[in-house]
């Protein structure tokens, strides 16, 4: 982790929200309440938010926290890449969609049955047009996270990378960690604490 230029980090872990390793919110509610609260408090009006499934909302909110003090307008958006993984893919939404098949299949739910839609929503929100890598692993693995960052930065023109883990299982069980990485060490100003999710491991 030491040779990475981490500019910012954000985590949402079952109502506990951390920015750059420091706690900013400690909510004890289900995700539907937590997500609305965070949206109202931290996000500019964005009506598409309400149409997203829970996985996308989780990824969206984590990105909002990640980039809240970062000027995304000052960077080349074609060179911002995303590499995000999780364990449960879109299982929660798959089951919701499957329920609709029995009566009337819902296109608005079906569209969220692909995990990379989460990357798409973030790209649309900020206009990022770089590389997209969406992967599924049994468990969050710090080494895999770094490995993916490294191969992406070394094999593409990526200047900034949003990388991490966004996993939604249920209303009371969800977890995310996103890092903003800069390729150029000069841009690095990460003075914060190590993200919580990475501290526990090691």
């Amino acid at each position: 982790m030491n040779d990475l230029n981490i500019l910012n980090s954000a985590e949402i872990n079952n109502g506990k929200v951390l920015a750059n390793g420091k706690p900013v919110e400690n909510l004890e509610n289900d995700f539907s309440i937590v997500s609305k609260y965070l949206y109202k408090k931290y996000c500019k009006a964005y009506i598409k938010f309400f149409k997203m499934d829970s996985l996308c909302k989780l990824g969206f909110l984590t990105t909002e926290m990640l980039l809240k003090d970062f000027d995304t307008e000052s960077i080349g958006k074609n060179e911002v890449a995303l590499a995000i993984g999780n364990s449960n893919s879109t299982k929660d939404t798959d089951l919701k969609y499957y329920e609709t098949i029995k009566t009337q299949p819902s296109p608005a739910i079906f569209v969220y049955t692909l995990p990379n839609i989460l990357l798409g929503e973030i790209c649309i929100r900020y206009g990022f047009k770089g590389q997209n890598l969406c992967y599924i692993s049994e468990k969050f693995d710090e080494n895999e996270l770094y490995e993916n960052i490294k191969i992406l930065l070394n094999n593409s023109t990526t200047q900034y990378l949003i990388s991490g883990w966004v996993d939604y299982i249920s209303e009371t069980n969800y977890k995310s960690l996103l890092l903003l990485i800069g390729k150029n060490p000069k841009n690095c100003n990460f003075a914060a604490q190590k993200p919580d999710m990475l501290n526990k491991k090691a």
Partner: peptide
């Protein structure tokens, strides 16, 4: 596992190639 909608296959080949090149 790479799951990137309809580009998954090409994305997985690129991902594998990056690992090999590294």
């Amino acid at each position: 596992v790479i799951s990137n909608a309809c580009i998954s296959g090409v994305s997985a080949l690129l991902y594998a190639q990056w690992h090999l090149k590294e």
